[in-house]
Amino acid sequence: MRCPFCAHDDSQVKDSRPTEDASAIRRRRQCSSCGARFTTFERVQLREVVVVKAGDPERREPFARAKLEQSVALACRKRGIEQERIDQLVSGIQRQVETSGDSEVSSQRIGEMVMEGLRQIDSVAYIRFASVYRDFSEARDFEEFASTVRDVGHDG
């Protein structure tokens, strides 16, 4: 594993343990060149899945868990939602995508899965995500959408 500090190609694993939801292995590593310590996560990837973009069906890119995590985290920012709950949502969506049997999934389908998951967790995060996903352009768009949302239980 390449060191993120000095780019040396060799590091030693000092500790390995499963993450809280057991969806990955967390490894603490130490660079054999500069001695820096860093953490890596190893996840099971069941299959390569390509995402077909909604606006341009000719545009395709590999499914990226990090991109999904970033979108969900942004919607949940400052909502007091536990990171474990966000990780469970992202892992569940990734599992659905990888076990669907299809080698391609539309970005629209992924967006719908995120919206469904966020709707169950937090109504504000749900509306935030929807505002980007559905491209709200005016305050009226928020009002109309928010009026259809029933408040859900929020742990925070």
Rank of each mutant, 00 (worst) to 15 (best):
R85W: 03
H8C: 05
R128H: 15
F5V: 13
E20M: 13
A54Y: 06
V124F: 05
M115V: 03
Q30L: 13
R65N: 00
R26Q: 09
G80I: 07
L74W: 08
K67D: 07
D135V: 14
A73V: 04
A73M: 10
E69A: 04
S32I: 15
C3G: 01
E84D: 11
A66R: 03
S100Q: 05
V97F: 00
E20I: 13
H154S: 15
T40L: 06
S123K: 05
A73D: 09
I25Q: 02
H154R: 15
R119I: 06
R59L: 14
V97Q: 07
D155K: 14
S103N: 12
V114A: 07
I110M: 03
D9K: 15
F38S: 01
R28K: 13
R79M: 06
V149F: 05
K78D: 07
Q120D: 15
D141L: 04
S100C: 06
D10P: 05
A73W: 00
A22C: 14
R134H: 10
M113C: 02
E112L: 05
R28F: 03
F145H: 04
R27N: 10
E112K: 05
E82G: 01
R85D: 06
L89C: 08
G35E: 07
R77G: 01
P18M: 13
F38Q: 00
A130C: 08
E138H: 05
H154L: 12
S16Y: 03
A66N: 14
I86A: 06
R140Q: 11
Q108E: 15
E143V: 15
A66K: 10
Q88M: 12
G55T: 10
I127Q: 08
D155N: 14
Q83P: 03
L118A: 01
R27T: 00
R60L: 09
M113D: 03
R47D: 11
R59G: 13
G111R: 03
D21I: 07
D135G: 14
G92T: 04
Q108Y: 15
R27I: 04
V105F: 09
G80H: 07
L89Q: 03
R119V: 04
I81F: 04
R27P: 01
F129K: 04
S91D: 09
F63P: 00
I121Y: 02
G156C: 03
F145E: 10
Q88I: 06
H154F: 13
E20S: 15
P57Y: 05
D102T: 08
C3V: 07
R85L: 06
I25M: 12
